[in-house]
Amino acid sequence: MKVQSQSEFGTGVGTLLKITLAPTIWAFHFVISYGAAAVWCEKLTAQGDTVALQVWLIGLTAAALLGIIACGVVGWRVWGKGGYGADGHTPGLGNTESRQGFLGHASVLLSVVSFIAVIFVILPVLMIGSCT
């Protein structure tokens, strides 16, 4: 009973949470950027220059964007496999392939939104070159 139960929690919720991987990357990117800017400006720099901060956060952004692209590509492949249909009439909506396809589609869409949101968040670092 127990072995089966562990896998239900892991695979069930785990698979469902996979669609939130891209927005989770956005969340970490956001929190780290915010925390780094706060600590940098309050504790680490006296003159308020942000060059080192910019370099680090651009690196972080590149990593985050790569991660999100990976989520999108994986989602795209899963999406393509199933017989996905948005109108609810497509034959085979009630099977495992279409469920997988739906989760893939949702991952792709969330990756797109997260990609845009990460770019939004890094813009102030690039455009505002000072703490004050």
Partner: peptide, 11 residues
């Protein structure tokens, strides 16, 4: 700091 405001404005 203005940078911090920028993050929240962007989001």
């Amino acid at each position: 700091p203005n940078i911090s405001l920028g993050f929240f404005s962007a989001a």
